[in-house]
Design a protein around this nucleic acid. Structure first.
Lengths: 332, 332
DNA sequence: CTGTTAGCGCGTTCAA
DNA sequence: TTGAACGCGCTAACAG
């Protein structure tokens, strides 16, 4: 394994000069720089990043902490992060928490011990606050996305949850639905709480009543969506906005099972543009969170050392499940 | 930041002893070991992995090289890898190649420079051989999965491509279909070539003719699947086995567009149990590759230093798209 | 612009 | 069973 010292002796200079030339330090003559580069190439030199990391006290790796990697949303965010950070010469190390606060704590501590250059994190669903992290992150730059805690310093990338739910609900209203329920998720999550607010605001702006009896607060999975669909029907609803995609799927299945025609008799919009939403029958209208772009943005926030909060707009993708009497919106 | 030297002075011993005690070296008195451990705990010592890595010449990170992370298959493999390696104290660093040989070469070189403990890789679709990697992997342990090259030493995790395509085709035959075409993919990929062989064998075993005119050699994407569906219909087929899921989707769309009833008039089985296959209408029968298990197996191969080849069975999941006259198979 | 000096923190010799 | 000493390879401060 050839080192900078080898190059240095071969060239009759010191390791410092070689190091400078290799790392693009301007305090080195152009001629020397070229000579070093050529010699390094010639001798098949490969920088020992481990040594470099130790010397600098920081690794060239950014840790990503997320509930799970095998999900449409998280895998796309990760893809976006990797594409930007890889370009910039950083490695991306992933850690799954499976929604457990304990696993998240362990992952962050492990990353801290690895002296990672930064951490990009979306908090575990179990988290009800940032206390378990505050004392272990130290001075590691941290970028939060999607599920964020304001009490943790650093950049934050959020979805436009309020605005998204607002335009989704508004779209249902414009399509002529009048009694619109919501599969809203747990209010311990800021994201879900904001979506519910957006839904509420859209109703109020349209002078429609906000009725808590048709707002279903539960996890946004297929089963609870199914139940919500049944209940909404019994409650006389003609539409549902769902804060999840799988819960919207469950609702559609429930309604189809009851022989209800979608979108003629009942309209549905889900959240999160999972692949299946475009391929099912009827295809599902959804709010896309642009996960890949969120990942890119998170990576850029890290690279630029930003500390601000950015909001990524949601995009309403209108498909069959709500496409009745359409008035001037985007169809895909 | 507290170091082993800090602990050593606090205890009146040398850093060597502390190092030994901490790393479980037996050449240290039990009493001393306990004292060191307690002191380390008390002082909030965290081992500097960077220094440890440099000293050992190897990092505690395993690199994963794959075409892209945002796919059902790869994200699940990655999930499996991370869950096993995370447990074992390794970090998982991901690198996307987007199918480019050049990007793959760069990624592997980068991992080598990072002195990773090992590499888990599925080759880029552009790769037509392992030449670009042979001279840069050095002595890094390498585990290949799915798209593998036998010329690269080390463990290999393959799908049971031949057997999977065989049982899928056999299932179509047993369901009563008689002229079964294939959307077969490019033969430059061993995986696709083996699937075609399995398809062929099933036909021959059932005394059905193997007809090259209804074998469509093209990429297995939605568009080519659509075209294959049209052509298969014109060629008088009553079923298709597809080596991809999206190509099978395209074929189903083509047939539905032509008013062909599925599965009554036409049967389809796809490969790769993408989430949407269960949720579309009609739901698609598929071969599941068990990607999560493949990832776990790849990780274990690395941990155990294995060099063998293991084959993960495919599972036929029978859904609506081929569920006609069913004779004793599993339905989900 | 280049050299000198001095570690980063740990693990592993060798010697006691 | 412990200590002393060294160096993994690189970078940064300081000096010239």
């Amino acid at each position: 394994m050839v080192t900078i010292t080898d190059i240095a002796v071969a060239l009759g200079v010191t390791p410092s000069t070689v190091s400078r030339a290799l790392s693009g330090n301007p305090r080195v003559r152009e001629k020397t720089r070229l000579a070093v580069l050529r010699k390094a190439e010639e001798m098949g030199y490969e920088r020992n990043i481990l040594a470099s990391n130790l010397r600098k006290g920081r690794s060239n790796i950014v840790g990503m902490v997320l509930p799970r990697i095998h999900s449409e949303f998280y895998s796309n965010v990760t893809g976006g992060v990797e594409s930007v950070l890889g370009q910039a010469g950083y490695g991306v190390m992933i850690c799954q928490t499976l929604g457990s606060r304990e696993a998240e704590t362990k992952a962050v501590r492990n990353l801290r011990d690895n002296r990672v250059a930064g951490i990009i994190i979306s908090h575990a669903i179990e988290d009800d606050g940032p206390e378990h992290l505050l004392d272990i992150i130290g001075d590691t730059p941290i970028v939060q996305f999607d599920r964020v805690f304001d009490a943790i310093p650093g950049a934050k990338i959020k979805c436009a949850n309020f605005e998204g739910a607002y335009i989704a609900t508004k779209h249902l209203i414009e399509a002529g639905y009048r009694r619109i329920g919501a599969v809203a998720g747990f209010m311990t999550s800021e994201a879900y709480a904001l979506r519910l607010e957006g839904y509420k605001k859209a109703l109020i702006d349209a002078a429609l009543p906000y009725d808590e009896s048709i707002v279903y607060l539960d996890s946004v999975v297929r089963e609870t969506g199914y139940e919500a669909g049944i209940k909404a029907l019994e409650a006389g609803c003609d539409a549902l906005y769902s804060s999840g995609a799988f819960s919207a799927l469950g609702a559609i299945e429930a309604l189809k099972g009851k022989g209800v025609k979608i979108p003629e008799e009942f309209g549905i919009v889900g959240t999160s543009n999972e692949e299946f939403t475009a391929l099912m029958t009827p295809s599902m209208s959804t709010l896309s969170q642009h996960p890949f772009e969120m990942g890119e943005e998170a990576a850029r926030a890290f690279l630029q050392g930003r500390e601000d909060t950015r909001v990524i707009p949601m995009e309403l993708i209108i498909r069959q499940s709500s496409n009745r009497n359409l008035t001037g919106s985007k169809i895909i």
